[in-house]
């Protein structure tokens, strides 16, 4: 068990290193670079840019040096000084730029996961127990809808609904005006949570619908297993039979897909954040990719991928803790 944790931790770092390299090279693949995109936007604004200007900017930003050198220099900075480089556009260190936004993104993701499972598990179990009943059909239908509706559309619908129909102000920002610039307090946290539910629901919709379907399907398999009948046969009351035995097994796929789920959420998050105008990393990420703002974009991709890698690692640990067959190495 301990060996496995050590091995997985090591391999996690290797994975992250490989991903960081791929990311860095991928971002530099499209033709042009940051200097050109700046020149382009300036000339659109009517400011003339000479080729010399571009050349100077390139030199200042080390854009002329070989890609590999720049990558090594970047990684070295991260490892030795925790320095993720400068954003070209904002001319500030990447860490300063994304610090608070990253926290908001992480909070949003965790909250979404929480809402997803709080809804998906009981609904999935319920729908399996009452298979082919009216409530099951309704849940299954809603599940289809949830999978089918694109995030941004749902975001727009909820925005419209809450502002126009319900008349709630400030959905689409993270804080009420009075807390906007206030220092962190209990009230501010509550205010944040009150505002985050819209993006959390939008983001979690597909995951919840998927989760319900997975749990329903596994439950239907497990409910017919002999160990469930055997539990009934020794006089265990029905409700306890359900929650102690088949649910325990039906949670396995949920736990093992935690990592992927996190990734799906993280890649859906920027779109939702842009639509809802959230000050998280989404809009920043989008702009950085357009600009070829290498270090900013690279850092953000690295953050999102490490979410997946760490999420998968955590879900494996959780699974081992949860299922003795995996812990004792009977099933791999």
């Amino acid at each position: 068990m301990l060996g496995m944790i050590v091995f997985r931790t090591l391999s996690m770092f290797v994975t992250l290193a490989i991903i960081s390299a791929i990311v860095f090279f991928l971002i530099s693949l499209p033709p042009g670079d940051f200097a050109e995109s700046v020149a382009l936007s300036r000339s659109i604004n009517g400011e003339p840019v000479t080729p010399e200007d571009i050349q100077i900017m390139r030199e200042r930003l080390h854009l002329n040096e070989p890609l590999l050198d720049r990558y090594i220099w970047w990684i070295k900075g991260i490892l030795t000084e925790g320095d993720f480089g400068m954003s070209f556009r904002y001319m500030t260190p990447v860490t300063d730029l994304i610090g608070e936004r990253m926290g908001l993104t992480a909070l949003l993701l965790v909250l979404t996961l929480f809402i997803t499972y709080i809804i998906a598990i009981p609904v999935g179990v319920f729908s399996a127990i009452y298979q082919y009943s009216l409530p099951d059909y309704i849940v299954t239908f809603l599940g289809y809808l949830g999978l089918a509706i694109p995030n941004f559309l749902m975001a727009l619908v909820l925005l419209y609904f809450s502002t126009v129909v319900l008349g709630i102000e400030g959905v689409g920002s993270v804080f009420s005006p009075e807390y906007q610039n206030a220092v962190w307090s209990f009230g501010k946290v509550i205010d944040l949570l009150l505002h985050l539910w819209v993006p959390a629901i939008v983001l979690g919709l597909a995951g919840t619908a998927g989760g319900i379907r997975v749990i329903r399907a596994t439950m239907l398999d497990e409910l017919n297993k002999l160990y469930v009948t055997a539990a009934r046969a020794r006089g265990v009351p029905e409700r306890r039979v359900i929650w102690k035995y088949p649910v325990r097994i039906a949670l396995n796929p949920v736990i093992s897909t935690l990592g992927w789920n996190l990734r799906d959420l993280a890649s859906g998050a920027p779109v939702v954040a842009i639509v809802l105008n959230l000050p998280d990393i989404g809009p920043l990420f989008f702009q950085a990719l357009l600009d070829q703002d290498m270090f900013l974009a690279g850092t953000l991709v690295l953050f999102l991928t490490s979410l997946t890698v760490v999420g998968t690692f955590l879900s494996d640990l959780l699974l081992a803790w949860f299922d003795p067959r995996i812990r004792k190495g009977v099933v791999k």
Partner: peptide, 24 residues
Amino acid sequence: ATSLRGKAVSVVFQEPMAALSPVH
């Protein structure tokens, strides 16, 4: 029905592996 099971009538099944929970 629940209170009779296991007290009035108990059962032993064919496949003990399948009849025992794999995770308890």
